[in-house]
């Protein structure tokens, strides 16, 4: 395997990881701060992508589309938090899973009712289209590089928000003792709505960004959701830093496994057998990674006490 292919795959892994992070960040905050398992997080990705596709079709502006995805998904998040999710904080996880699964069905069918079943069009803006040549002669799509940069900037921003601002202090306090912070006069239910909307907005942004290179269709968020749960288990529940490290680990493992394992088996097997064994193992690799992390650190890489 050539060096160029290796580096390109590494970038692909990083890009995949960054996308996962945008989804996992919201999920881990909601899980960590409110103790809520939100299966409907994938639907918020879809809401963001559909909002972006609609605005892009109406205005032709990609930046407006991105803004619409964040605002649309955050608004949808705030509304479901106030109408449904709020009633679930004190319930056990089974009730939460049932209710948020119902939300998936409502979002999917609602979207189908409004937009129909055919995929929508959302494309990369001309100024981000096409490949760029990186040092070393690697050709890489500019759009994917942009995703990596935007994702890392958002990670840095979130980190500052949680560690350095007043609202961040409240979020962290809410995570460790919700009665105490309520007693200190923080409006806890407003805080929860805010955190939920923040996570939803990030998921919406992820939806708009991947919508431009994939297809904008009903149910597009669900496959990402499963991996996002793996990420927060690896990273440690409630930790933004853990979500970032976990996302990149999962992204790189998944992408590199898909190419290195078949290449490895090709050393002593014929091509088609190596391909099938290698890719079968590659799909397992992230779960093996998760198992290893849990054996060594049962509460995840950066998790508090389990």
């Amino acid at each position: 395997m050539s060096f160029l292919l290796f580096v390109e795959q590494l970038l692909n892994g990083l890009q995949f990881g960054v996308m996962l992070f945008l989804t996992a960040a919201g999920l881990t905050l909601v899980f960590g701060v409110m103790g809520l398992i939100n299966l409907a997080h994938g639907s918020l990705i879809m809401v963001g992508a559909f909002a972006a596709a609609t605005v892009s079709a109406a205005t032709g502006s990609y930046l407006l589309a991105i803004a619409a995805s964040i605002v649309g998904a955050a608004a949808a998040g705030a509304i479901i938090e106030m109408l449904v999710i709020r009633r679930l904080y004190k319930r056990d996880h089974l009730d939460q899973v049932l209710a948020t699964f119902a939300l998936i069905l409502i979002f999917s069918e609602g979207t189908r009712y409004v937009f129909g079943s055919f995929p929508l069009y959302l494309n990369i803006p001309p100024y981000l289209a096409g490949p760029v040549t990186l040092p070393g002669g690697i050709e890489y799509p500019l759009y994917r590089l942009t995703i990596i940069v935007v994702g890392l900037l958002i990670a840095a921003g979130l980190f500052l928000l949680i560690a350095r601002t007043r609202i961040g202090i409240q979020i962290r306090a809410g995570e460790s003792d919700r009665e105490m912070i309520a007693a200190l006069g923080v409006d806890i239910s407003r805080l929860y709505t805010l955190v939920f909307a923040l996570g939803a907005g990030l998921a919406g942004l992820a939806g708009a960004m991947i919508g431009a290179i994939q297809s904008v269709q009903v149910g597009m968020g669900e496959p990402i959701l499963i991996l996002a749960f793996v990420v927060i288990v690896i990273g440690g529940i409630g930790s933004i830093k853990g979500a970032l490290i976990g996302s990149i680990l999962v992204g790189v493992t998944d992408t590199m496994g898909g190419i290195l394992l078949p290449a490895f088996f090709r050393l002593f097997m014929d091509n088609s057998a190596a391909m099938s064994t290698g890719s079968a193992l590659a799909t397992m690799s992230i779960y093996i990674l998760m198992a290893l992390v849990l054996i060594l650190k049962p509460s995840g890489l950066y998790g508090g006490k389990a």
Binding site: M1, S2, L5, E8, Q15, T255, I259
Partner: peptide, 21 residues
């Protein structure tokens, strides 16, 4: 080259890199 992808897969970055190479 010959590749089987996952049914329902949406990101082909890895496959495209292999096609290029």
């Amino acid at each position: 080259g010959e590749l089987f992808t996952k049914l329902g897969q949406t990101d082909y970055a890895s496959e495209l890199a292999q096609i290029r190479a």
